[in-house]
Design a protein around this nucleic acid. Structure first.
Length: 512
RNA sequence: GGCGGCGUAGCUCAGUUGGUCAGAGCACACGGCUCAUAAUCGUGGGGUCGCGGGUUCGAGUCCCGCCGCCGCUACCA
């Protein structure tokens, strides 16, 4: 098959990992897992953005060096992703030597191409922050962090001539209508470009914690200018041209809407300036917004927040996974449509969990296992080739695949649950628990088992551990991810003659 | 202020280029079943598609105005 290069943003280490990060990362992970299942060669990366004044400041506050501080805080992200079963192929940190090399190579080319020039940066500066603020950011005319007066400062900076790329960006958007999705986000980016672009300051002399500017000692690159290049670092830009060419520009950047501007305007322009193609696809998703009953009392206590003051960015992913389990939280994050903002609440997780996981999928597995136990001595029969479920399964596999391809995990899962519903309905209409032993009984139960097999395959990108457990319970060897779609999802793959184990409920129903 | 997004059944949301587009899931009601995690299956209820105009043979779907909520506003993930 093809190659699939997928990225999350690299997260800023000064933040603690929260549900918003998890939303992006879990969706990316599921997409990566789907593409592996579909036979693509996948490169899925995430990482951390570690430079900038805030990190240097935090390090100083903790009496340590920025690099040490970044080591500690980057580890929190790695731990969070382990906890969510994230299967990244690379975790890049912008403080790594390989990144310094890539950034310097990339920006030297931009410089050599004439798109960087020296200029004067002026702004309101807080000495203690070692950083500039805009007037809107000030609180009562003072630094929002320290409450102390700011001073007007100016320093020589290098500027990227973003303004020279207006026409090329517009032409790019015109010729690549699918580059930025969904269309509403594309329009937002276009609107910004049409509004007029200005040169942007990309270096600082007031800061040491950053990638040194190769042509001028004393300057370091500033924030986004080094961070965005991480996507190229990871594929060997500047050091392994062959590998880089294999993956670029056919990349998929999955990002949140708050960083649309950097990815959809600056980044393509930077690529053009460096003489490489802009990224093929940037998929912009919305935010999870708290609504309704936000969290349980236990969770609020753990977070030391009240229901009124808790924000989504206060919620660490493990607060949720400790309560619901990893796969149910993954599932919930994946059932949220990727694109617009969505509502997020504790109640909605419970509702979704009970309806989809406990009542439909979990209960289907349980009832099938029970009847196989009582009617077939615990040995699963093979499916009926002419089962009415066969065409439903085929349609589901096709729909799910198409949905994953268009970055719509929620639709892939919705399709899969229609197959689960069809299997539950078939059991109602045929009532195998009333049948006598024979071909008809075997056909119905074998077909139900085949649905479970196909469902395990289809949900494995979303809930890898649960899929493996379901796979094991219906007696299959190996794991779903050892197989491939769509071939192995074709009707009739369940061989029959396997031991079927009921076990405890896969997803115990929740009371509250 | 400027730019952009959103406002569709009790709840959460789908609704390509205007004409079965008035839908899904959850919740609810009634009925069936009792293999199953008080699970499942069937049926049903109808919301002036934020408000007011307009274009059109016909508009959640296009245009204008208004109201409400939200994001971005440049070097701050």
């Amino acid at each position: 098959m093809g190659r699939f290069f997928l990225t999350t943003p690299i997260y800023y280490v000064n933040d603690a990992p929260h549900v918003g990060h998890a939303y992006t990362t879990v969706n990316a992970d599921a997409l990566a897992r789907w593409h592996r299942l579909a036979g693509d060669e996948v490169f899925f990366m995430t990482g951390t953005d570690e430079h900038g004044a805030k990190v240097a400041e935090s390090a100083a506050e903790h009496g340590t060096e920025p690099k040490n501080w970044a080591d500690q805080t980057a580890a929190r992200f790695e731990a969070a992703w382990r906890g969510l079963d994230i299967s990244y192929d690379d975790f890049i940190r912008t403080s790594e030597p390989r990144h310094y090399r890539a950034v310097q190579t990339f920006l030297q080319r931009v410089y050599d191409n004439g798109y960087i020039e020296k200029g004067l940066y002026q702004g309101l500066y807080c000495v203690r922050c070692e950083d500039y603020y805009t007037e809107e950011e000030l609180v009562g005319g003072n630094c929002p962090n320290h409450g102390t007066p700011v001073t007007f400062m100016e320093e020589e900076n290098y500027f990227f001539k973003l303004d020279q790329f207006t026409d090329r960006l517009l032409a790019w958007y015109e010729s690549e209508p699918e580059a930025v999705r969904p269309a509403s986000k594309r329009n937002e980016a276009l609107g910004f470009i049409r509004g007029g672009l200005r040169p942007i300051s990309i270096t600082r002399t007031s800061l040491r914690w950053g990638v040194p500017v190769p042509w001028d000692d004393g300057h370091v690159f500033y924030v986004w200018y080094d961070a965005l290049i991480n996507y190229l670092t990871a594929i060997g830009y500047g050091t392994d041209d062959e590998r880089c060419a294999a993956w670029w520009p056919n990349v998929h950047h999955l990002i949140g809407k708050e960083i649309l501007r950097f990815h959809c305007v600056w980044w393509p322009a930077m690529c053009m300036a460096a003489g490489i193609d802009p990224p093929a696809n940037i998929f912009v998703h919305g935010w999870l917004l708290f609504g309704g009953e936000k969290l349980s009392k236990t969770m609020l206590q753990r977070l030391r927040r009240t229901a009124e003051e808790v924000k989504l960015t206060d919620v660490a992913p493990d607060v949720l996974t400790d309560d619901f389990g990893v796969d149910p939280i993954r599932y919930h994050l994946l059932r949220v449509p990727l694109g617009n903002d969505s509502d997020f609440s504790y109640d909605s997780i419970v509702t979704r969990y009970n309806a989809d996981l406990a009542n439909n999928l979990g209960n289907l597995a349980a009832r099938v296992a029970t009847v196989v136990g009582s009617k077939c001595g615990g040995t699963g029969p093979s499916p009926d080739p002419a089962s009415p479920l066969a065409p439903v399964a085929a349609e589901t596999v096709a729909e799910a695949g198409a949905a994953w391809e268009r970055f719509a995990p929620h639709e892939a899962l919705a399709a899969t649950w229609r197959l689960i519903g069809a299997a539950n309905a078939l059991l109602e209409s045929t009532e195998p628990w009333k049948m006598s032993p024979g071909a008809e009984l075997d056909g119905v139960l074998g077909s139900a088992l085949e649905v479970l097999r196909i469902v395990a395959l289809l949900v494995s990108p979303a809930m890898p551990a649960s899929a493996r457990e379901l796979w094991r319970r219906i007696g299959l060897p190996g794991a779903p991810e050892d197989l491939g779609v769509p071939d192995d999802a074709a009707w009739g793959g369940y061989p029959g003659g396997l031991r079927v184990e009921k076990g405890d409920p896969l997803f115990p129903r929740r009371r509250s």
